[in-house]
């Protein structure tokens, strides 16, 4: 798990949808909802691509509000 929020986070909900375009390429859309101690909800949208090359896998994602 890569969640690096502080201990103020009381709950997380992380749904992700993937679409495989071939055996080597998949695109995904990951959403992360973090519920804080004062019912504050932060959310992050993380589009990402996963590429397989030989026996290696590379994932790249972009987000402007990661781990707010």
């Amino acid at each position: 798990m890569r969640d690096e929020r502080g201990s103020a986070v009381k709950g997380v909900f992380n749904p992700t949808l993937f679409r495989e375009f071939s055996e080597r390429l998949a695109l995904g859309l990951e959403t992360n909802l973090a519920i804080g101690s004062k019912r504050r909800v932060d959310w992050t949208l993380l589009p990402q691509a996963q590429v397989e090359w030989r026996r290696h896998s590379f994932q790249m994602g972009f987000s402007d509000g990661l781990w707010r």
Partner: peptide, 13 residues
């Protein structure tokens, strides 16, 4: 189907 998949992770830190 053959192409789509969905994952949900939920919990409490």
């Amino acid at each position: 189907g053959q192409r789509w998949s969905a994952l949900i992770m939920q919990g409490a830190p």
